[in-house]
Design a protein around this nucleic acid. Structure first.
Ligand SMILES: Nc1nc2c(ncn2[C@H]2C[C@H](O)[C@@H](COP(=O)(O)OP(=O)(O)OP(=O)(O)O)O2)c(=O)[nH]1
Ligand SMILES: [Mn+2]
Ligand SMILES: [Mn+2]
Length: 352
DNA sequence: TTGCTTCGCCAC
DNA sequence: AAACGTGGCGAAGCAA
């Protein structure tokens, strides 16, 4: 064998496709040549034992470099805590972003990742409360589109992600299937094509196209909402959210179809993602207000797009959780009920 | 040493 | 990469 830097995609490309001569049929892409990302290596794993080893190394290396090594060094000695910036003028939709360090992308998917999340712990005598809106952008979509099937589903208390998971990821553990179902549900609404859907679903192209067609047939009001949103955006030059935030999209008038269609997908997404951001920003005002009014001692620690994480004295967890839920669910009435999953634990992994 | 682009991947 | 969208960050590679 030979030596190469396992962290270098460029060197790995040479090893896989030139030294080992693993077939690169249908792999192409990238500005610099053949890709070595997780999709490619997963397929190559059928032809050689190395790609699977690289994938395992990549996963662990990502967790070590980005979280395990980086975060402890950033703990403030004065407070014993991590202090992040929550940026209000970065994301074009009105979401917050988090940086130095980013505390909105703490791992949760894998078992190893959850061990990192578990390191975010409440001080003794306290508990962490995590309160996360259920299916938030699908509910906002139901509100904005008025689609009768979607409205009815939420009125009945249905779980669309779980429904999709049972439909197309029946063989997977329910929690994993549900996360993959989110990619499908949001992907299709925001303009995913059949090629990508086929890969995500693990089915042939024609079947994926049929699934997308079936989706918009079932939720016909969603298709109409997307079309009218884009039409109106092109006429006005911008889209708006529930609380009136605007995003200007001059590329809607571009001659280059790729540029124009990118803007059309952004125009579709922004009213929904941005309205969800409006709601949780209001909730960030309402939750501390309600806790203070009730004489409870909770502190808001983190916002993760549709989730609030609080630190609460152990003795006050139950009343605090009840008020957090109420404040978030009643924050801004829509045509569908808002539901919030509230959990608590000694650390973020338990509470999530 | 610093700053930039590229690749890849973590989360919502 | 692909007709999902929104972010931030580490490592490699390169230029200054
Ligand atoms: N376009 C897009 N948006 C996403 C994706 N994942 C998450 N989001 C957005 C839409 C979600 O409503 C929002 C919050 O993410 P969550 O993981 O909390 O999902 P959601 O609230 O839909 O379901 P939940 O009931 O909380 O499990 O972030 C994605 O893969 N694509
Ligand atoms: Mn949610
Ligand atoms: Mn969430």
């Amino acid at each position: 064998g030979g030596e190469f830097s396992i962290h270098s995609p460029a060197q790995l490309r040479v090893v896989l496709f030139e030294k080992l001569k693993i077939s690169s049929r249908g792999v192409r892409r990238g500005k610099t040549g053949l890709s070595t990302d997780v999709d490619v290596l997963t397929r190559l794993a059928r032809d050689h034992p190395l790609p699977a080893k690289i994938l395992e190394y990549r996963m662990l290396s990502k967790l070590k470099s980005t979280y395990v090594d980086a975060l402890p060094a950033l703990v403030d000695p004065r407070t014993g805590r991590l202090h992040s910036s929550f940026n209000q003028t970065v994301a074009a939709t009105g979401r917050l972003s988090s940086s130095e360090p980013n505390l909105q992308n703490i791992p949760v998917r894998t078992e190893e990742g959850r061990r990192i999340r578990a390191a975010f712990a409440a001080p003794s005598g306290h508990r962490l409360i995590s309160a996360d809106y259920s299916q938030i952008e699908l509910r906002v979509l139901a509100h904005l589109s008025g689609d009768p099937v979607l409205l009815e589903a939420f009125t009945r208390g249905e779980d669309i992600h779980a429904r999709t998971a049972a439909d197309v990821f029946a063989t997977l553990p329910p929690a994993e299937g549900r996360r993959l179902a989110k990619v499908i549900n949001y992907g299709i609404v925001y303009g995913m094509g059949a090629a990508r859907a086929a890969r995500e679903l693990g089915v042939p192209l024609a079947e994926a196209q049929a699934y997308i067609d079936g989706y918009f047939a079932r939720y016909a009001g969603v298709r109409a909402f997307i079309d009218s949103t884009v039409t109106e955006a092109r006429a006005r030059g911008y889209v708006t959210t529930v609380l009136g935030r605007r995003r200007y999209l001059p590329e809607l008038g571009a001659r280059d179809p790729a540029v124009r269609q990118f803007a059309e997908r952004a125009a579709t997404n922004t009213p929904i993602q941005g309205s969800a951001a409006d709601l949780i920003k209001l909730a960030m005002l309402e939750v501390p207000r309600q806790l203070a009014e009730a004489g409870l001692g909770g502190r808001l620690l983190l916002q993760v797009h549709d989730e609030l994480v609080l630190e609460v004295p152990e003795a006050e967890v139950e009343p605090a959780a009840a008020r957090v839920r109420l404040a978030m669910e009643k924050v801004w009435p829509l045509r569908v009920p808002l539901r919030v999953d509230v959990r608590h634990g000694a650390n973020w992994a338990e509470a999530h």
